[in-house]
Design a protein around this nucleic acid. Structure first.
Lengths: 142, 142
DNA sequence: ATGAGTGCAAAGTGTTTGCAACTAT
DNA sequence: ATAGTTGCAAACACTTTGCACTCAT
């Protein structure tokens, strides 16, 4: 039984074929797939699971904390299974040119967070959005 | 003649009814409207300008540097007329609960940028994405 | 048994396209 | 004159909905 599945049971949530399929697809895909990419993978790996179920399930799993989502530039949302330990959590940056997603240390924005809080009371949630920029490779080619 | 219009002429770009309409709508709206909101405003203020023109024009103006765009959480892109002076540029954060957009000092992420560059060569472009979090009001109500 | 979860199909949303006609330069 | 812009309508990708049915518990 996968860790994600165990998390579901712990929270007294039902473990259904659809949910298993989504979890499996996420594990299989790795990285930071969008909802649409998860949908495609689910359809391949576990035919019969409906599109709508994938979207509903991703949302549910995100609410339950089993999966994490990050908003990317250009309007997409990326999902992945939640980190097993806090130490494995991370922030994201996405290359505006090639689309590559880079992981960043989780404490990178701690100072910024503190400064913004002090300045106006806004609470920044650094993990919720990917920073934008250009990756090393693309910068080199520029 | 508006400043934005002057910028167009400077770059030898045509000043058309559609472009004037988009610039006018942006000036009228202020803040950080999405493309769809600009479309609505254009349709109101300058009927006859087509939806597709608004989207194409926003993209063109963004490329020319006449307007600036910021990617927001939840998949939308917000536009505004480019700041007349560098000192008026700013970063953005969006409240995940009420959607309010807060302006932040332009140098807020300078340190982060430097650290990320040193660590892996990724060039962060802080102005291109809005940070996410909760504004002071919504934090209070939580 | 019972309510949470699902498939289905359909309708959103917001955005983009190919093309012929138009117009700012 | 001639390229760049536009209107149009249609297609587009992605996501969400209402409802009846099914299945995990």
């Amino acid at each position: 039984m996968s860790y994600a599945e165990a998390q579901l049971r712990e929270q007294a949530q039902r473990v259904t074929a659809g949910r298993r399929a989504v979890i499996r697809a996420l594990a299989h895909l790795g990285g930071h797939p969008t909802a649409a990419q998860v949908e495609t993978a689910v359809t391949e790996l576990s035919p019969g699971v409906h599109r709508a179920t994938v979207y509903r399930t991703l949302e549910t799993l995100a609410t339950l904390g089993v999966v994490t989502h990050v908003h990317m530039t250009h309007g997409t949302t990326a999902y992945h299974l939640a980190a097993r330990t806090a130490s494995r959590a991370h922030l994201h940056a996405r290359c505006r040119l090639c689309g590559a997603v880079v992981d960043l240390p989780p404490d990178l924005l701690d100072d910024v967070r503190e400064r913004v809080r002090a300045a106006g009371g806004f609470e920044v949630d650094p993990a919720h959005v990917a920073l934008s920029g250009t990756c090393a490779d693309c910068t080199r080619l520029d």
